[in-house]
């Protein structure tokens, strides 16, 4: 469903994404992990059609994003890491606007909007301006808008940022549901727990390069770590082992 071929993004002297190639099958949840500044958000932005790659190709549902941007975007639901929305629209208006933008029409449209607002517990806020929403509410509103047009591919940058435990649980349940309905999910996250729990396969990007890829079990094998937790595997593969107690001892020394 998703295919990245030798994807590279260069910002003047800096190579943010370096020759990344990967495939995500239909109905698969793919976790994209990496330390800060590794190139996750740049890759996600290219995948969402917000940024153009310097070289390489992105194919979604067999269509080249560069050649068929509109058709590809019609198939994608995108959630950025920061929920910037139209603050002067109400939640309901925003959903309606997004429905029209994605050409969603027909009888069931309004009902579907209402269902999503209810699912994400936003129905009673539907007639209030988005500007008065909390961070978590905005995040939930974006998520409902991104699912509205029944995308085949869901591209998510940090799905749990700013969500309370209830919101986070809801998102996890929705992801599981999406998996059942054979929707392909490509998500970047720092929450290793969600990657461990939900992802069929995980890719680890470091300094712009895809350094490891596979199922949780395959990554465990690759890392050869005694500790089977994803956190330990991740730290080992990215060469960022946790600091020892001696190394962080200086924090309290001044006092």
């Amino acid at each position: 469903m998703i295919r990245l071929e030798e994807l590279t993004k260069r910002f003047q002297q800096v190579i943010a994404v370096n020759d990344v190639s990967l495939k995500v099958a239909a109905g698969e949840i793919y976790g994209f992990l990496g330390p800060n500044g590794a190139g996750k958000t740049t890759t996600i932005k290219m995948l969402a059609g917000i940024m153009r790659p310097t070289s390489g190709r992105i194919l979604i549902d067999g269509l080249d994003l560069e050649k068929h941007p509109i058709e590809v975007k019609q198939r994608v639901g995108f959630i950025p890491d920061r929920p910037f929305l139209y603050e002067k629209l109400t939640g309901l208006e925003f959903m309606s606007f997004m429905a029209n933008l994605y050409g969603l029409n027909g009888k069931g449209r309004d009902k579907r909007i209402q269902q999503f607002l209810e699912l994400f517990e936003l129905a009673e806020w539907g007639r209030e301006l988005v500007g008065s929403y909390s961070h978590g509410m905005k995040q939930r509103l974006i998520m409902s808008a991104a699912l509205l047009h029944e995308p085949r591919v869901f591209v998510v940058d940090e799905p749990l940022v700013g969500l309370d435990p209830k919101g986070a649980r809801l998102i996890k349940r929705i992801f599981s549901k999406l998996k059942d309905s054979s929707l392909t999910v490509f998500m970047s996250t720092h929450t290793l727990e969600i990657a461990e729990e939900l992802c069929d396969r995980i890719g680890i990007i470091h300094k712009g390069k895809l350094i490891a890829e596979g199922s949780y079990a395959e990554l465990q094998q690759m890392a050869g770590q005694e500790d089977p937790r994803l956190e330990s595997i991740f730290l080992h593969l990215t060469g960022a082992e946790a600091f020892s107690t001696e190394e962080i001892g200086f924090i309290r020394e001044q006092n």
């Binding site: 208006e93 959903m95 309606s96 606007f97 029209n100 933008l101 050409g103 969603l104 029409n105």
Partner: peptide, 29 residues
């Protein structure tokens, strides 16, 4: 400040087909 927008302006844009739908959605916004 909680600001509730009345029904007369918060009524969602009506479904329309094709390109017109997008252009009207943008203009309405």
């Amino acid at each position: 400040r909680r600001l509730v927008v009345g029904r007369f302006i918060s009524e969602g844009q009506r479904p329309r087909k094709g390109h017109r739908s997008q252009i009207l959605a943008l203009m309405g916004k």
